[in-house]
Design a protein around this nucleic acid. Structure first.
Lengths: 346, 346
DNA sequence: TTGTACGCGTTATCAC
DNA sequence: GTGATAACGCGTACAA
C-alpha cells in the first residue's frame, strides 16, 4: 500500500445549527419553523418565506434522531442478507431498497455471513436502532424454527424472503420454484425431449423441492429418473464439480437429451462439459439453468434459465412490509412470485 | 403472484420499556442503570446484578436514538454505491461492512444508480440521520469537481473510493490500476510476447489511465500500439460487443499474440471470439482481464486477470474512515492499494 | 457508590 | 396563525 499525504487539513466539527437558531433568525417560534418544514399546519405565506430563507441561510438540517425519538418511527428498515458476494441477493436488496427509497426510507444493510448467531445479534442491534421493520433474506433455519423470529415479529414488522418453515407463523415472500421446475420440464417435453437429467447440489431445502417435482413429473411421463448430485455450493467451485459430474454422465451408456440444473453455476459446468466432449449445444444436448444470474448471459452459447425475478421479489417484499408498517394489516401472509422461463441458446 | 392468507394475526405494538422502568424494577435510579449498561463508572457488585436481572426480566432495549442525540454520535456510517448489480462494488461493501461491523457500527447502504442528483439527495439524507461518516464508492464526477463533496467533508468525515479528481482535496482510497497494467504487460513480455493489443471501453477515466500506461509501455518496447474500443459498459452486453470487436481484430492481417482487456467482461468476450474462430487459448492467443470477478473463474479455460482486491480495498477504506472519525487525524490522505496479477489458464 | 436534575433537538398539545 | 411548554429516552455534571 502506498500512502500519499496531502498536506491540506480539514476543519474541526462545528456546532450544529438547530431549529432554535432558525427560529431566532426568522423571528418566529420553533413551532412555526417545524410547521413550515413539515407542512402539516397552516402558516402565513409571509412567515413561511421568512422561515424558508432562514433555513437556507443557515443551511439547517433537521435532526432525524430527535424527530424519531418523539414520533416513534424512524423511516428506516433493516435488511439482513446471508451474503454480499451472491448477485442473487444483491438483486433482492436492489428491489427492496428501490421501493423503500422512493418512499423516503433508508436501509440498514447487515451481512449475517450465514451465521445464525450473528443474525441474532444484528437483529437486536437493529431493534435498538428503532427500525420500523426488518426484512430477512434467506434467514437461518435455526432462528426461524426456534421461534426467535416470531418473537421479534411481535415487536416490529418482520418479513421473510425465501425462508419458509412449516408451522412458523410469519409473513413470507417466496419464489414459486416448484412451478419453475415444472415449466422447464414441460418445455423440454414440448420440444420432443423426455430423457431429462437433473443436476443438483447435495443438501439444501430448495434442491429437495426441485428434485421432488422432477421426480413426480418423470413418473407421470414414465421416463427414467437420472439425478446427478454434486457437493452443494453456490460459487465458482460448483462449476468445476458440475463439469466433472456431467462429463461422467455424458460418457455413460445412455446419454440424456437434456439437463435441468438447479442453478446457473451448475448449468455453466454442464455446458463446459459438453464443449470438452464436443457435444453440440443445443443440437445434441439441451441445458436449462436456474436463477438467470448474469453468468447465464455471458456463456457462448447463452444459457437458457429459469428466472426467479429476484429484483421483483425484493420489490414485492418492500411493498408488503410497507403495508405492514403503515396500515393496520395485522394478518400473516405468504406471497408466491411466479418464475419465468427464459429460452436463450442452450 | 399467489397470495396465501395465514389466519394468524400478530399483536399490536406495545409500549417500549425504558431505562426508567428498569430502574423502578431494580429499585435504583436511572443513572445506575445507565452505568451498568455502559460500564463507565463503578457500580457495586450487588446492585449490578440486581439491575442486570431487571434488564433481563423486562427484556430492555436501549434506544440508540436517544443515546445518539445526547452523545452526538450514532455509530452509523453511510455507504453510497453507483450500483448493486456489480459484484465489484458488492465486494467493496462487504469489506467496509466487515470492518465497521466488528467495531459496532451499522451501515446505511444507498444506491445512487449512478445519478449525481440522487447521490446528492442521499448524502443529505444521511447527514440528517447523523451518520458518523460517509464512504462514497466511485462517486459521480459532477459532485466531486463541483466542490460539493469537499463541503460535506467539512461537516463529517468523508472517504472516496476510486473517485480521484485532480485538485480536489479529499481523503481517497484507490486501486493502483497503473501498476496493474504494467504488471500484466511485463508478464506478457516475459513470456516472449510483445504484440499486445488493448481492449477498452470508450469513455471512462479508468480506461484512459490504462491506455496511457499501455501506450507508454509499447513505445518503450518499440511495439505496435493496437487499441480496440467498444462502447463503454460494465455489464453482460459488454461481452457481445467485445466478442465482435475482437473477432474483427483476430481476422485482420496481423493478429496480436496477446490481449489485455480493461475488465473481465471484455476478456470473456475476447475468449468467446477466439473460440468461435477456433484460435487456441492460451497456445495461439493469451488473454488477461481485469478485476478478478467471479466470471473470470467460470470460463473454460479460466481467465487470467488483474485482481484489484476489492474486498481489501473496502477494508482499507473502513480502517481509514474509522481513524478519521475517532482520532484527531485531520489530514487528507491518498491511499493506493496494489493489484495482484493472477495467472490462470488464458 | 448512588441519586437529582438538566439537556440533546425535535414534535405534540394546548392556549391564545 | 402563532407561541409556550411538555415530552420522547438517554447520558452526565454535580451533589450527596
Amino acid at each position: 500500500m502506498i500512502i500519499e499525504n496531502l498536506f491540506y487539513k480539514w476543519g474541526d466539527i462545528v456546532a450544529r445549527t438547530t431549529i432554535q437558531d432558525v427560529a431566532k433568525e426568522a423571528g418566529v417560534s420553533m413551532t412555526t419553523v417545524s410547521r413550515v418544514m413539515n407542512k402539516n399546519y397552516p402558516v402565513a405565506e409571509k412567515t413561511r418565506i421568512r422561515v424558508e430563507k432562514a433555513i437556507e441561510k443557515l443551511s439547517f438540517r433537521p435532526n432525524m434522531l430527535a424527530r424519531g425519538l418523539i414520533q416513534n418511527f424512524t423511516k428506516t428498515i433493516g435488511i439482513l442478507t446471508p451474503s454480499l458476494e451472491n448477485l442473487f441477493f444483491s438483486e433482492v436488496i436492489k428491489g427492496i431498497d428501490g421501493v423503500m427509497g422512493a418512499k423516503g426510507y433508508t436501509s440498514f444493510l447487515c451481512n449475517t455471513e450465514g451465521d445464525w448467531e450473528k443474525e441474532k445479534e444484528l437483529i437486536d442491534s437493529l431493534l435498538n436502532r428503532q427500525v420500523d421493520g426488518i426484512v430477512l433474506i434467506d434467514p437461518r433455519k435455526d432462528n426461524v424454527v426456534s421461534g426467535f423470529i416470531e418473537e421479534i415479529a411481535e415487536e416490529v414488522p418482520v418479513l421473510l424472503i425465501n425462508g419458509h418453515s412449516k408451522g412458523i407463523q410469519c409473513n413470507y415472500v417466496l419464489n414459486d420454484a416448484e412451478a419453475g421446475v415444472l415449466e422447464a420440464l414441460k418445455y423440454f417435453v414440448s420440444e420432443g425431449i423426455d430423457d431429462i437429467a437433473l443436476l443438483r447440489g447435495k443438501k439444501s431445502y430448495s434442491y429437495d423441492i426441485k428434485e421432488e417435482v422432477y421426480s413426480q413429473f418423470m413418473k407421470e411421463q414414465q421416463g427414467v429418473e437420472r439425478v446427478v448430485r454434486i457437493r452443494d455450493g453456490n460459487d465458482a467451485n460448483t462449476v468445476d464439480q458440475a463439469k466433472e459430474a456431467v462429463m461422467a454422465l455424458l460418457q455413460s451408456d445412455i446419454r440424456p437429451g437434456a439437463i435441468l440444473a438447479c442453478n446457473d453455476w451448475m448449468a455453466v459446468g454442464a455446458l463446459n462439459a459438453a464443449k470438452t466432449l464436443e457435444i453440440k449445444v443445443p443440437e445434441e444436448l439441451r441445458i436449462i439453468g436456474f436463477d438467470n444470474t448474469i453468468i447465464s448471459q455471458i456463456t457462448d452459447p447463452k444459457l437458457s434459465t429459469v428466472d426467479q425475478q429476484m429484483t421483483r421479489l425484493g420489490e414485492l417484499a418492500a411493498k408488503r412490509i410497507y403495508k405492514m408498517m403503515t396500515k393496520d394489516d395485522h394478518e400473516n401472509q405468504k406471497l408466491f412470485l411466479e418464475t419465468k422461463l427464459i429460452i436463450r441458446e442452450s
